[in-house]
Each structure stands twice: as structure tokens, then as C-alpha cells.
């Protein structure tokens, strides 16, 4: 990494911010420190520098620097594009924002939260405030694919990825939205092969995200609502169970059951469970004997046999 390049990019940013009118390339080469060599070299340098600043999220306005001769473009950075402007913030609002920035323990969000906080502190000059105690929330493990999905989403590009489900396959998708549900990130999008909305769990994507189209490849329907789709596509069937459980055992199950006593050793419980009923029942080992529904009893018996 070269100090010269870093220095030149900072100088260029400052010069383009300070100017009140568009600067031509010739003016930039003459005035901004760091542009040396032949004209061709400077041209190439400047083209790369512009791309680099844009990659940093800095918007460079291109316009005519001379209203009479508009054949040569000029460049400048507008304050309103460059600077943070959230309007007036009360001390309380600022502390909410700071909390929002630091609540994450997930790598991606805690890193971008730390950067946001540095900017907020530059805005308010409160970097030395007392450390506030608060609850931190760590969500799922890591979400390395999030930035790629996020840009595909905002740029409306179709993507593909390898997805691990009952079988592993490549999915081609128009990404409509991302959502955090039960502490886990999901992508909702149109599966281009099945031509249907599908939900994908980010942790089950096992490849990089491949971009498959230019921007504007699809339009998200006006009435699209992530929450509704997620809930609609994931109905959880609930089943009513009856079981015998030993007295003084299966506490977490008892709290959601109606309990009737059988004898000195057993109670009878009636309760409702969803998709994870197998795990819930097996957790209690020999302290529970499932009685109905009959097909679930049969499944538990064969499951126990297979695990023996």
C-alpha cells in the first residue's frame, strides 16, 4: 500500500469538497498535490482515483466548469452528498442511536455499527461519555453473504447460489427482501425456475453469491410484504398430544399442559407442539410415555429403535 496514493486521494477529496465550482482535469492536475508524470499517466491516475472515491461511497458530481464551453467536464463533491446530516438530535435520541450501533455482536453489524458510532461521536463530540450499561443482542453466528445480498437487493439484480436443503442445488433468484426472523436471517425472493416466491435461510447458502443480471432485472410488486410472505410460506402445523409423565419431572412441558393425576408415579399431560415435537418428547427420555396421536407414538417408537 502506498502512502502517496493515500495522500493523493485525501488531497483530491479535500480539493473537490472545497471548490465552489467544477474543477477541470487540467486544474486538478495543476493544483492537487500528487499528480505527477506524463499527461497519460496523470489521466490514468485520475480515472482510477475517481473509481476509488466512488468505491468509498463518495459521490463526485460531473458538470460543466465553463458555461460557455461545455465540451470538457468538471468535477466537484457537494457538501450535502458528503456530510452526515440527520438534523437536530436530542441527547436522548443520540443515546438511542449509540445503543442501536453497539447492540450487535455479529461481526458484520458490530463493525459497521462501530463506524457509524465514530461518525455520530464526530457529530456530537460525545466520545468521552460514560459507558452506558445495556443489554447486548447477539443474533445468529456470522452473515458473510449479507453485503452481497444487500447490494443485489438494492440494485435489483438476479443472483444464484448453492443452497442446502433436503437436496443441495443451485438456485436462481430475484431477491425481494431480507428479514431477521427468530434471530436468523432469511432471503425472500422469486425462484426463477419454479417461478414462485421462496424463503432461503442465509446460513444454508453454501457458495458465494453470483450476480446474474444487470441492475433493474425485476420489479418488486407494490404489495409485497416480507412478513406476510414469510408467515404464509412457513405455516407450522400444531398437533395436540397426550402423554404420561413421571410426577415431579418434565417441568417445561407441564407449564404448557393441562395436567391430571393418574397414580403415585404418573400424571397425564395434554399439550400442543409444533414441528419440533420429536426433540421435545425425546428430551425427557424415560420420564415421558407418549399416548396419542397413534401415528406420532409409532414414529417415536421407531425413532428410538433407530437411535439404539
Amino acid at each position: 500500500m502506498s502512502d502517496q496514493k493515500t495522500e493523493r486521494l485525501i488531497n483530491l477529496t479535500m480539493a473537490l469538497l472545497a471548490t465552489k465550482r467544477y474543477l477541470s482535469k487540467a486544474e486538478i492536475f495543476k493544483q492537487v498535490a500528487g499528480y505527477t508524470g506524463s499527461n497519460d499517466t496523470k489521466e490514468r491516475m485520475f480515472e482510477r482515483d475517481k473509481d476509488d472515491l466512488r468505491a468509498l461511497g463518495i459521490t463526485i458530481q460531473v458538470g460543466s466548469y465553463d458555461p460557455l464551453f461545455d465540451d470538457e467536464p468538471g468535477y466537484r463533491i457537494l457538501e450535502r452528498d458528503y456530510e452526515l446530516d440527520i438534523g437536530e438530535l436530542s441527547a436522548t435520541e443520540l443515546s438511542y442511536l449509540s445503543l442501536a450501533a453497539t447492540i450487535w455482536r455479529n461481526q458484520l453489524f458490530s463493525a459497521s455499527g462501530a463506524l457509524a458510532l465514530v461518525k455520530l461521536d464526530a457529530l456530537s463530540g460525545t466520545a468521552l461519555r460514560e459507558d452506558f450499561g445495556h443489554a447486548t443482542l447477539s443474533l445468529e453466528n456470522e452473515t458473510p453473504l449479507f453485503p452481497a445480498l444487500w447490494s443485489a437487493l438494492t440494485e435489483t439484480r438476479n443472483i444464484s447460489f448453492t443452497y442446502r436443503s433436503k437436496i443441495t442445488s443451485t438456485r436462481h433468484v430475484s431477491p425481494f427482501g431480507l428479514t431477521l426472523w427468530h434471530g436468523t436471517w432469511y432471503l425472500v425472493g422469486k425462484d426463477l425456475e419454479k417461478n414462485e416466491l421462496r424463503v432461503f435461510r442465509l446460513s444454508r447458502m453454501t457458495s458465494e453469491i453470483t450476480v446474474e443480471s444487470k441492475t433493474g432485472a425485476f420489479t418488486v410488486p407494490e404489495d409485497f410484504n416480507i412478513e406476510e410472505h414469510l408467515i404464509m410460506l412457513n405455516p407450522e402445523p400444531l398437533t395436540v398430544f397426550k402423554a404420561r409423565v413421571r410426577i415431579g419431572r418434565c417441568h417445561s412441558l407441564r407449564s404448557k399442559s393441562t395436567v391430571t393425576n393418574i397414580d403415585a408415579e404418573w400424571d397425564r399431560l395434554e399439550f400442543t407442539l409444533g414441528n419440533n415435537w420429536r426433540e421435545e418428547i425425546l428430551w425427557f427420555g424415560s420420564d415421558i410415555v407418549l399416548e396419542s396421536p397413534a401415528e406420532n407414538v409409532a414414529e417415536i417408537k421407531s425413532l428410538l429403535r433407530s437411535k439404539l
Binding site: 469538497l17 457509524a116 461518525k119 464526530a122 453485503p147
Partner: peptide, 28 residues
Amino acid sequence: AQVLDQPRSLTQIEALTLVLGLQLLVEL
């Protein structure tokens, strides 16, 4: 600080982090 006295605007991911963080705070 010359022209650099004000912080840069938030990137999309930074803004998103704050928006989602606030959404979690509402619950708390």
C-alpha cells in the same frame, strides 16, 4: 480541519445497522 470538520454521511450498511438496531431497541 479545513473542509473535513464534519463526519461523512453513513454508508447504506451503517444506516441499516442503526435502523435495525433501533428496531430491536423498540422491543426492549
